[in-house]
Structure formats: C-alpha cells, structure tokens
C-alpha cells in the first residue's frame, strides 16, 4: 500500500485540493450517511409511543346498574379516572336549564350523554390535569354542584362543563357504548 512518494505533492495540513472534497461521489457519500442516521433515529424515538400491549388494554367494561341515583363511581381507563354519575332528575334539569351555546366551551347537555341519567366524563381537569373533587357525598362540588378542581379553582356543572375558573374546555367525554342495559364499555 505504501508506494514511493518521493515526487508526490503532499497536500498535508494546509487543506488545499478543495475540488476533491466537493466531488459528487464524496458529497453523495456524506449525504447517504446522513440519511442512514436519520432512518436509525426513528425507531429510537418511536419506541416511546404506547406499546402494543398498552394499546390493547385501552378499553374498560363497567357495570353501571349498581350506581344509585345521585351517586357516582370512579373507574380507571387508560390509567386515568373516569367519573360515572347517576344523575338525579334535578341535576339533569339544571344541566339543561341554561343555553349551552353561551358557555366558554359551548355544548348542550344532550350532546354529552347517551342516556340523560348517566353522565360519563374523564375525571381530569382540562386546565393542568388534576382530578376534580365532587365524587364523594361530602366533597366540595363547586358553585354549579358538579365538580370543583382544588388545584386552581375550576368549577364544573352537573354536565361536567366548565363554568368558572381557568380550565379552557369541558371535562372530556370518553368514547363508550352500552354493551347491554347494565354494562358500558369505555374506549
């Protein structure tokens, strides 16, 4: 490999011979290296997305027949609390008493329930993710008798809609359907 070089012009450290560096094949090689590196980056990033087993567990079935009128239960769905409240006729009436279009996050109560008596919402305040109070009988329920978030004082009504405080939107209604009269599947 080492040949006689007595008369060769050594380019050495002064970095001449620029044309060689700009040669097509050289540029293309470095470009390929960059493309390869980018391709490798994707699996390393994507591994942080939910794994197949996490996605498969994304539904929860709940028997709602045992919730007495005026009572609420909390179930876990995707690691988050879901509030299921069996509303009284009075609570339903209050939820429908106001014009939903005038609220901060305009929505009618009937758009948020499949059966008026059963309200299902994700129990996570839309402000910064705390769990609002109002599930237990003794809890503070806020000015609108729904839920009250103790972190920054958001008040939700009996339909889980934001009425007062910093939260921007209503409590989210998760996708769910009735498997039978008594059982709902969330997710």
């Amino acid at each position: 490999m080492v040949k006689s070089t007595s008369n060769s012009k050594s380019p050495s450290a002064d970095g001449v011979q620029e044309p060689a560096r700009r040669d097509f094949i050289v540029v293309a090689t470095y470009a390929m290296g960059a493309v390869g590196a980018a391709a490798v980056a994707w699996p390393l990033i994507d591994q942080m997305n939910p794994a197949a087993d996490t996605l498969a567990l994304a539904s929860t079935e709940v028997d709602v027949s045992k919730i007495a009128e005026g009572q609420a239960i909390t179930v876990t769905w995707r690691g988050k609390p879901v509030f299921i409240r069996h509303r009284t006729p009075d609570e339903i009436a209050r939820a429908n008493a106001i014009d939903g279009a005038e609220l901060r996050d305009p929505q009618e109560d009937e758009a948020r329930v499949q059966r008026p008596a059963l309200l299902v919402v994700v129990g996570v305040c839309t402000h910064l993710g705390c769990v609002p109070l109002g599930q237990k009988t003794g809890d503070v329920k806020g000015d609108y008798d729904g839920w009250f978030c103790p972190c920054h004082g958001s008040h939700y009504d009996t339909s889980g809609r934001i009425r007062k405080g910093p939260a921007p939107t209503n409590l989210e209604v998760p996708p769910y359907n009735f498997l039978s009269d008594n059982v709902i599947r969330i997710g």
Binding site: S8, P11, A20, R21, D23, T29, G36
Partner: peptide, 22 residues
C-alpha cells in the same frame, strides 16, 4: 442493500480524496 451501496460509495469517495496523497 443500503449499507452495501454506502460501502461502495465511501470506498470510491475515499479513493477520490486520497488520489492526491500518493
């Protein structure tokens, strides 16, 4: 396939760059 091409390309590029050394 990609890396084979890359190997050939980098070898050619190496030859090209080193052409002026010896």
């Amino acid at each position: 396939f990609f890396l084979s091409i890359f190997l050939i390309m980098s070898y050619l590029a190496k030859r090209r760059i080193w052409a002026d050394v010896y």
